[in-house]
Amino acid sequence: MEELIRSKFTVLQGIYDGEDGFCFVVDGVGYIMPIRVMCEYAASAASISALALKALDPEDTRGWHRFFDAWADQGVIPAA
C-alpha cells in the first residue's frame, strides 16, 4: 500500500510531526492523511481494492468509504 500511495499521490514529507502524509482530492475538497495510518489499516485487507478496503470497516466508522470509491473512480485502485 505504501508503494502505491507514494507512486500515485503527492507526498508531504514530515507533515505529521515528522511522519509523511499524502494528499488527495475528493469532490473538489483537498485532504491529507498520514501514510502510516492508511498502510496499517490496509495491511489486513484481502487485496488493495475499494471493495476489500471498505470491507475492513463495513459500518464506515472512519468515514473513508467515499475516499476508496473516489480512488477507484480515479483509477488509483481497482473497484473490486
Binding site: 483537498g30 485532504y31 491529507i32 492523511m33 495510518v37 472512519r62 468515514g63 473513508w64 475516499f67
Partner: peptide
Amino acid sequence: NEIAAATTVI
C-alpha cells in the same frame, strides 16, 4: 458534515 478519521481537510 464530517471529518474522516486521521484526516486533514484543507
